[in-house]
Computed example of a mutant assay.
Amino acid sequence: MHIKRFGQAAPYEAPNHYDMRALRLQGFEAGGPGQFWVGLSHLLPGGGAGPDSSALEKVYVVLAGAVNLKTAGEEAVLGPLDSVCIPPGEVREMRNHGNEVATLLVVMPYPPGGAPQGQEKRS
């Protein structure tokens, strides 16, 4: 078991994001998950990301507020406990058009090469 208290979560910068603050809840550390990492993103009113894509799939779970998500073929508003899987290579754009902070749980696999060195693989 690898417990990490919320107060221990370190901030990180996400490329092509603005008016957003992010914390790494699990991953990129010894004893953490070996296949993926978990982040918590706070999108301030007017904040967002993209448009851009990633070579890795990702899952967003909205915990609070609302997020407008747009891909080439769809546009949707996600609210609390709604989730979405963005496949690799899909261009997405997200925005917080509301007046309250939108909070998202982010789950992504590690980049090619796997977990950081010193982190044990788990099956």
Rank of each mutant, 00 (worst) to 15 (best):
G32D: 13
S53R: 07
L25I: 12
G27S: 09
P51E: 11
V67M: 09
E57F: 11
K58P: 04
Q26V: 11
S53Y: 08
S41D: 04
D19C: 02
P45I: 03
P51H: 12
L44C: 00
V67I: 14
Q26A: 14
L43R: 02
S41P: 00
H42L: 02
G34W: 14
E29N: 07
D19S: 12
P51G: 12
S54Y: 03
M20I: 05
A30N: 09
K70Q: 14
G50V: 07
L69N: 00
F28L: 13
A30S: 11
L25D: 13
V61P: 03
S54I: 03
Q26L: 15
G39R: 01
L44E: 13
G65D: 02
G47I: 00
V38S: 06
G27E: 10
S53M: 11
M20S: 09
T71C: 13
G39K: 03
G50I: 05
A30V: 14
G32V: 06
K70I: 14
A30L: 04
F36G: 00
F36C: 06
P45E: 07
W37F: 15
V61M: 11
E29P: 05
G48M: 08
P33M: 06
P33A: 10
G46E: 05
P33V: 04
G31F: 09
D52G: 14
G65W: 01
R24G: 07
G27K: 06
V61D: 02
L43I: 04
G27Y: 08
G32E: 12
G32W: 08
A49W: 03
G31Q: 11
A49R: 01
A66C: 04
K58D: 11
G46M: 04
L69M: 14
G48W: 06
G46K: 00
L25H: 11
G50T: 06
G39T: 05
G48D: 01
G32Y: 09
Q26I: 10
A49Q: 03
D19F: 05
A22T: 14
Q35I: 07
L63N: 10
W37D: 04
E57P: 09
F36Q: 04
D52M: 14
M20Y: 04
A30G: 07
P45F: 04
G47N: 03
G32H: 08
L56T: 07
F36D: 01
Q35F: 10
Q35A: 13
S41N: 12
V61G: 03
K70R: 15
T71E: 07
V67K: 01
E29M: 09
A64R: 15
S41V: 01
P33Y: 11
L56R: 13
L40A: 10
L44G: 00
L69F: 09
G65T: 04
L69G: 02
P33K: 00
L63Y: 11
P45G: 03
K70M: 12
L69Y: 03
E57S: 09
K70P: 05
S53A: 15
G46W: 02
L63K: 15
G31E: 09
N68R: 15
G32K: 04
A55V: 10
V61Q: 08
V61L: 15
T71D: 08
A55R: 09
G27L: 06
L40I: 01
A66V: 01
